[in-house]
Simulated scan of single mutants.
Amino acid sequence: MLKKNNSTPLYNQLVDVLIEHIKTNLDIDEKMLSEREICLKYDVSRTTVRAALNELEEMGYIFKRHGKGTFVSGLWKEMQNLSEAYSFTEQMKQLGKIPHSQVLSLEYIVANQDLAKNVGIQEGEHVYKMKRLRSADGMPMMYETTFIPAYLFPDLTISKLESMPLYELYPQVYNQDIKYADEEFYASVLQAKESEELGLPAGSACLRIRRTTYSQENKIIEYTLSVARGDQFVYKIRHSKK
């Protein structure tokens, strides 16, 4: 049951409980509990229920049919574990390539207003700024700039970053489990510094990716700006018709 005195917000607890309910009791396209049923079963307000259901819909566990109610989606079964789906290392291994990540730099900086907003902190707080070059079979594939809030990852060092993949470091060393990540991407061309790192002429086609990764507590644990070479990197997305 939900713990109302717990520091974890009620709707976050409810999301986890409902995910377990879906996985263990319901089939794809089966009707989900109504808002009223959830309110009564878990003794929570309608506002809390709606917040939880909205998040479940965004995560691919449920979908709504106008005038008919809420149903279980099969999309979540198609999703890989986040540590795999968002892992360059695992993605390259699946393609039969040998991945390598090189940490080019790590800085401890003060966040300006724009960066603070993107990392979910206050202006003037500290973040780690990391630059990495991701390669496969010795070929540079992606140049990344990652911002990590310092308050969640104290004493972060290059040696720690090089000791294991980043999405293993988060939970294993800092107890920060990934819940989900939002991404935006668009076609572009390489700037001078980027072309130098990727070994391509300036102006070459590239894919720009902006990712915001969230913890189980819905805190931003990473904000990454990536540039992937357009002649080698393929970005696959599956859209599911509801």
Rank of each mutant, 00 (worst) to 15 (best):
Y223M: 04
T48D: 01
N81Y: 08
W76S: 11
S226N: 12
M141G: 12
R50I: 13
Q191G: 13
L10W: 09
S101C: 09
V227D: 04
A51F: 08
V44N: 03
Y186Q: 14
A136I: 00
L190F: 12
D16Q: 06
Y214Q: 08
T145Y: 00
E194A: 04
N112R: 08
K77L: 08
Q216T: 14
A187P: 05
Y170G: 01
L225W: 03
M139F: 13
G138A: 09
I220L: 09
S163E: 07
Y214N: 08
L156S: 10
L56N: 13
L18V: 05
E107G: 10
T70K: 13
E20Y: 11
N5W: 09
P99S: 09
Y108A: 05
L2H: 00
A192Q: 15
L18G: 03
Y143P: 00
K219F: 07
T48C: 07
D114R: 15
K4T: 12
Y174V: 05
G60L: 01
V72W: 00
G120C: 04
V234Q: 11
D16M: 05
K68Q: 10
L106N: 01
E123G: 03
P154G: 01
K23Y: 00
D114K: 15
Q113L: 10
S7D: 14
K219T: 04
K23R: 04
V173F: 14
R238C: 06
A187T: 13
E37V: 04
P99W: 07
P165C: 00
V227T: 07
D43S: 09
G203I: 09
M142D: 10
L198A: 12
A52W: 02
E58D: 12
F185L: 14
E144H: 06
D43G: 08
G120N: 07
F63C: 03
T213H: 02
E35G: 04
F233E: 04
E30I: 02
S240T: 10
K77E: 14
A187V: 08
A150H: 11
A187S: 08
A51Q: 13
L2V: 03
P140N: 07
I237A: 11
I209E: 04
I148D: 04
L200Q: 07
M59G: 00
I178G: 05
E107F: 10
Q176K: 11
E107L: 08
A202M: 15
E58Q: 13
A51H: 10
T47V: 14
Y170C: 09
A228E: 06
Q102A: 11
S34C: 01
T47E: 14
L56I: 05
G120V: 05
R50A: 06
E194R: 15
P149M: 04
Q13C: 01
L190P: 05
K4R: 13
T47C: 07
I148L: 06
L26T: 05
E144Y: 02
E217K: 05
C206D: 02
G74K: 13
S73Q: 00
G120Q: 10
K131Y: 04
G230E: 06
E168F: 00
V49P: 07
R36L: 05
V49D: 05
N54T: 11
K23Q: 09
L156Q: 11
T48Q: 12
S204Q: 12
L14C: 08
K117F: 15
A192Y: 14
L56D: 07
P171M: 12
L200T: 09
L166F: 15
S87D: 03
K68F: 14
F153M: 09
F153A: 03
Y11L: 02
G60P: 01
F185E: 12
K31H: 06
D16I: 09
N6M: 04
A51D: 06
S163C: 03
Y11G: 01
